[in-house]
Structures are given as structure tokens and as C-alpha cells.
Nucleic acid binder design. Structure first.
Length: 276
DNA sequence: GCGACAG
DNA sequence: ATCTTGTCGC
């Protein structure tokens, strides 16, 4: 009696373990399959990328004609990495006053994988832009500042490029940390170059081992010792992007990004009861 | 074992 | 991304 029950229990345990094993293998296979799929998608979308100025205001010394800049951001809660607040703000230019704000809770089931940030964050941002288009097309930004990188990326197609292609909006990647790619390193040389930046607006280009200029390190305001890393997302040149970002910096992080950041965090705090 | 790792 | 207080300085 006992032995039969024990054998059955053992068989169950073994069966469960085997099922678990198959599940993990399937999961593992799916993960590498997913990465390959993502990589192919980045390569395909990259064919449509435009890395020069396309709008008249971009060439103007004072960006005459530019009236609206968008900023996007996602904030997360520590308890559950599938719960986040997505925010899209639009600021008037050159006043940099918020004229549109959209914060809302989202569920995200895609993990963060370095080099594939877009697959986690871009879908909800595209939704936010779509919502603005339907609700208030007059407030559509003429350029978007995106947290993260543009072409300064393992495969030359970071989140700012991805969002630019999917929305057809000019986009600029503004990263707070250097993504070390194509021979660009945060080494002593790099740190020395940073120390040499004198005042707000000073910058140096980031040149990959291929010789291509992939981005720039910008001392965004005179007080910040740490630069922001600018790279082309879509439909704007690096020179214009650097100039424009600097013109939006009251603090280290440019105002559109900063407002999106602040407001999405506040929204999460305010709605904390619903999150947990 | 060590360093890297946008958000 | 998030956790997390004060502290030193202008």
C-alpha cells in the first residue's frame, strides 16, 4: 500500500520535473528565437531610416517654425516589472511649457534586454502617439526626444530609431549613460574628453571603429559634470540634434524628457494603491 | 572569474 | 528602470 502510494508520488514528481524541463527548453528556445526575430526586424526597419534633416525648421539658426517638442518616458514600480506608467508630453517651443500630457498605466510583458529596449517600450509609446493623433492632432509634436539611443547602438537601430520609423516623426535619442558599442568606450580617454568640456553646449563626437560618427557627448548645462549622449533617431541630423537638445536644457536632462520623466513618476506614486 | 549591461 | 539620506557646495 505504502509502496504503491510512494511509487505513484515519485512518478508524479518525475513527471512534473520532466514537464518542467520541457517547459524550460521550450522557453529557452523561444527566447533565442525571439532575439533572432527581433534582430531581423531591426535590420528590416533600419532600411527606412533617415539620418539627415528633413524639415525646414531644422536648418534655421533659431529653429524658426518649430513650435512643439514631444518627450516620452516609462516609469516602473519595483514590485512588479510588468506594471509601468507611459507618458507622452508635448512642450511649446521655445517657451518649453507643457501643452499636452498623457500618463497612463500599462502592462508590459516583454523583458528588458540590452540592445532590444524598443521591443519593450516602443509599442505603448506608439499607442500614445496614435491616441494624440486622434484626440488632438494640432498638438502633434514636430520632433520627439526619446530616452535611450538612436543609431548609437549594437546594430545601429536603437529605440529612438525604432519609434521614429513607426511614427514617422523626427526623433532624437538622449541617453543618460553611454552604451559602449563599436569601439566607443567609457575609458580614461573618454573621461578626459568629458573633463575638457567647458560650458553648456560643448560636445564631442563619438566615432565608431568603422569611422562613422554615431553620436555625441553633450555637456547639456554648465553645471553638469556628466554629459548626455545624443544620437540620431530619425529625420534629423546629429548636428541639429545636438543644437536642439542643448537649447532645451534648463537642467542636465532636456526639458521634454525631464517633464515626461517627472510626470510619469508622479502618476505612479499617485496611483500606488492600484498598482500593488 | 570578470566585466558589461540604453531603460 | 528602481532601492535610498544625507551631505557638501554654490
Amino acid at each position: 500500500m505504502c509502496t504503491i502510494a510512494m511509487a505513484m508520488a515519485a512518478a508524479n514528481i518525475i513527471a512534473e520535473a520532466e514537464a518542467e524541463q520541457r517547459e524550460q527548453e521550450k522557453h529557452g528556445a523561444n527566447q533565442s528565437e525571439t532575439l533572432l526575430r527581433w534582430e531581423r526586424e531591426q535590420m528590416l526597419l533600419r532600411e527606412n531610416l533617415i539620418t539627415c534633416n528633413t524639415e525646414a525648421w531644422q536648418s534655421h539658426p533659431d529653429f524658426l517654425g518649430l513650435q512643439r517638442i514631444g518627450g516620452v518616458d516609462l516609469s516602473y514600480i519595483k514590485e512588479d516589472d510588468t506594471v509601468a506608467c507611459a507618458s507622452l508630453v508635448v512642450l511649446s517651443y521655445p517657451e518649453l511649457k507643457v501643452i499636452y500630457e498623457d500618463c497612463h498605466l500599462v502592462t508590459i510583458n516583454v523583458p528588458y534586454v540590452a540592445g532590444y529596449l524598443a521591443f519593450r517600450e516602443v509599442p505603448v509609446l506608439v499607442d500614445a502617439v496614435q491616441k494624440l493623433l486622434e484626440k488632438d492632432p494640432c498638438l502633434m509634436p514636430q520632433v520627439l526626444f526619446v530616452d535611450g539611443n538612436g543609431i548609437l547602438h549594437h546594430r545601429g537601430f536603437g529605440v529612438a530609431c525604432h519609434l521614429g520609423i513607426l511614427t514617422d516623426l523626427p526623433c532624437i535619442g538622449v541617453a543618460k549613460n553611454l552604451l559602449q558599442v563599436d569601439g566607443i568606450e567609457n575609458n580614461d580617454d573618454h573621461k578626459e574628453q568629458i573633463r575638457e568640456l567647458q560650458s553648456g553646449g560643448d560636445f564631442f563626437n563619438l566615432t565608431g571603429s568603422s569611422g562613422a560618427i554615431l553620436g555625441a557627448a553633450l555637456k547639456s548645462c554648465s553645471k553638469s559634470s556628466k554629459p548626455v549622449y545624443i544620437s540620431v533617431g530619425h529625420k534629423i541630423s546629429l548636428e541639429t540634434a545636438v543644437r536642439l537638445v542643448h537649447s532645451c536644457c534648463q537642467y542636465r536632462v532636456p526639458e521634454p524628457t525631464r517633464q515626461a520623466d517627472i510626470r510619469s513618476r508622479e502618476f505612479l506614486c499617485k496611483n500606488r494603491s492600484q498598482n500593488i
